[in-house]
Computed example of a mutant assay.
Amino acid sequence: MGFLYSQFLVRPSYPTRSFEGETVLVTGANVGLGLEATRHIVRLGAARVILGVRNVEAGEAAKKEIEASTGRSGVCEVWKVDLASYDSVLAFSDRIAQIPRLDAAILNAALATDNFELAEGYERSITVNVINTLLLGLLILPLLKATRQRFPSTRPRLAFVVSEVHAWADTTEIADEGDRILKAISDPTKAKMSGRYYISKLLEVLLVQELASRVRGSEVIITMLNPGLCHSSLGREAGLGFMLMKIILARSTEMGSRTLVAGVSTGLEGHGAYMTDGQVENMALSPFVRSEEGSQTRAKIWNELSTILEGVRPGIMENAQ
């Protein structure tokens, strides 16, 4: 009932917080929620907005559309990043590290697919939604922290776009997989792709919780947000059932994008929190996430992720301090 109530009766607040003088990063910014959130942030006065996109041509088209609709040019920059590739994420983050400041980042890019395919040795949606999303978050943390030091009036924010469908995940898929959960669910003989997006978002929620527990909110406010079911390009590779659900239940893309902007507008109350409809709602987290079993799973996948990411960029886990 909570899901239906939210979809049909709740309208997240229209964004009004000023981003004047700030530099903001949005991944998946050329379509859907990312595009509309970027439009809001440009409208609200950001000095520089980096559109992290896989398709640069589509990103340039989005940039022109945003400039035309907001009347602001010279703000948006289109940078390529493919979250299915370690090398692409590393190159992108190394480029980010060269800019003078980063006040906020919305890690929005994600994949929902019923098709099994490997990327960097893991099932592709696990690579995109979990491993490389956390990789990127960890890689940009030093600049977010440095921005706080260089510009004391700002409070950097790092928002991960998760989903309420984390509560729909079949946790039996990960229950008996020992200490290598990410690797086990990337086995094509075991993968349950019809529920893979749900599992990926559950794992992301657990990992963002752990990351936020290790980083002081006084340095960087780390939050995770649920935009609700929205019209977007997310399910372009998903099955018919997902598409039909969107047709019937989805809220508008612009309405959902307000929750993304809320995620980088929150104060300390948002650190480590789960936000839905633009508000902190920790009790909306699934019973599994709030359980002892969930805590144990969180520790296992954090350790597994740490090993993976240290192999990609040695020393990276020191950023989570």
Rank of each mutant, 00 (worst) to 15 (best):
M1R: 01
F3P: 01
L4T: 01
P15E: 04
V26S: 09
V26P: 03
N30H: 02
V31P: 15
R39V: 10
V42A: 11
G45R: 09
G52H: 00
K64N: 14
E65T: 11
A68Q: 10
V78N: 10
W79D: 11
D82M: 03
S93N: 09
R101D: 04
L102I: 08
A110Q: 07
A110G: 01
L111F: 05
F116Y: 12
E117I: 15
Y122V: 10
V128W: 07
L136G: 06
L139I: 03
Q149K: 13
P152L: 11
S153L: 14
P156L: 03
F160Y: 10
V161H: 00
V162M: 09
S163V: 02
H166S: 02
E173D: 13
D179S: 05
A184W: 02
I185G: 06
M193I: 06
G195P: 06
S200V: 04
E204A: 11
V208S: 11
L211A: 06
A212T: 08
R214D: 08
V215M: 06
V220M: 03
P227I: 04
H231E: 09
S233Y: 13
L234R: 03
E237W: 07
F242L: 05
A250G: 06
A250C: 09
R251T: 14
R251L: 11
T259E: 02
V261G: 09
A262G: 07
A273T: 09
M275Y: 11
Q279L: 14
A284T: 12
F288N: 01
E292T: 15
A299F: 14
S306Q: 10
I308L: 06
I316H: 01
E318H: 14
Q321Y: 14
